[in-house]
Amino acid sequence: MFSRFTVQELLTVFMVSAAVFFLLFRVARILWKSFIRDSLAKWLLKKGHITLAFRIRHGRPRRDTLTPYGTFRDR
């Protein structure tokens, strides 16, 4: 199927597609950080999923986060 296209054409299609996906990803990331993350965490909190909401809002606890039992890594 690809033999119908030249290498130049295939590379061009690849570069254009990569650029489009990259831009879509950038837009999605900005939207996620600016409001989707917070809204989702609030909704999860309302539904009672406290741990999941915390993880979405603040990320996974750091390995060296101090807990009452020592650091996360110590455990």
Binding site: A19, L23, R26
Partner: peptide, 13 residues
């Protein structure tokens, strides 16, 4: 090297 390059490619298309 990222946003401007990607925009330039899409705009060329």
């Amino acid at each position: 090297g990222t946003v401007i390059l990607a925009l330039a490619i899409v705009l060329w298309f």
